[in-house]
Simulated scan of single mutants.
Amino acid sequence: MASYREIAANGLWKNNPGLVQLLGLCPLLGTSNSTVNALGLGLATALVLACSNAAVSLIRNAVTPAVRLPAFVMIIAALTTCIELLMQAFTYELYQILGIFIPLITTNCIILGRAEAFAAKNNVARASFDGVMMGIGFGLVLVAIGAVRELFGTGALFANMHLLFGPQAADWQITFIQDYKGFLLAILPPGAFIVLGLLIALKNRIDHAMAERAKVEEPETPTPSRRVRVTGVIE
């Protein structure tokens, strides 16, 4: 069984769902045109992922293989409905902006994939921790894309954060360029593909550099010397 450190490393970096598995690209690219949208969807996905992993782990020995997949989908759909109702109650304006992407959490490949590949084979603690780490990893990628697109598209960061955190977050916006004309490509769907591609390239470059450094720092194993005894007969 994987250790908690390995689970965290896989979710945040080595097997990140957004940069390595390339799952959930539809919400990843569709809602990441601003930081608040990305953060809202990232938190909702992480909550569903953690809770569904825990629930699937609890019932993993009680369901037969024939009904396992429908049972997993029902659990995920029920949790998504709960998150949707909470967002309608407390962050209604953000819920309206995210629109169909909230119900579509039910069909997110990340959630169903982790339920089948990990939660159904591990105990509740490990399954929940895996869900949290995968959710955080996915959310970080979402927020990174949203921040880059918002910065280049509008010249500001953290606009409209009151939609998620209430009136006290109304003055969180940071404007870097006054009277910025805007960069339309950044906030359009092609901008999301470009930023995601750059993030994947950056991760691959960092992994390559770390692998090269590990090779350099790895101590060479000395070759044991062998003493050969030669005997012969001279005629």
Rank of each mutant, 00 (worst) to 15 (best):
I83L: 14
Y4S: 03
E218F: 03
I187P: 02
C82T: 14
V143A: 09
R229N: 09
P167H: 11
L98I: 15
A186T: 10
L58E: 07
N204Q: 15
P167D: 15
M161I: 08
Q96P: 00
N123M: 04
G166C: 11
T221Y: 02
G182F: 12
I206Q: 10
N15W: 01
G113P: 04
L23T: 14
G191E: 09
T106C: 11
G232A: 13
L151E: 00
N53H: 06
A156F: 03
S3V: 01
V132S: 00
A117Y: 03
G182Y: 12
A78N: 07
S52P: 02
V36T: 15
E150G: 12
I111T: 15
Y95A: 15
K203G: 00
L140C: 06
T80E: 05
P103V: 10
L98K: 08
M161G: 04
I136R: 01
G135W: 01
R60G: 07
L58M: 13
E220M: 14
R60K: 13
F158N: 06
A201Y: 10
W13P: 04
I102F: 11
D207I: 04
N61M: 10
A8K: 03
V148S: 03
L43Q: 00
L104I: 10
I234Y: 01
V141L: 04
I177Y: 12
L22T: 00
V148Y: 02
T80N: 04
N15I: 00
T221N: 04
D179A: 13
Y92K: 13
I194A: 13
L19D: 05
R213G: 09
L19M: 09
G232K: 08
G30A: 14
V73R: 01
N33F: 14
K203S: 08
N15K: 06
G42T: 03
N37K: 14
N108F: 04
I187A: 03
M133L: 08
E218S: 13
R227K: 09
A209F: 15
V230I: 15
V195G: 05
C26I: 14
V148N: 00
I111S: 08
L202V: 12
N16E: 04
R114D: 08
N61K: 14
V67H: 11
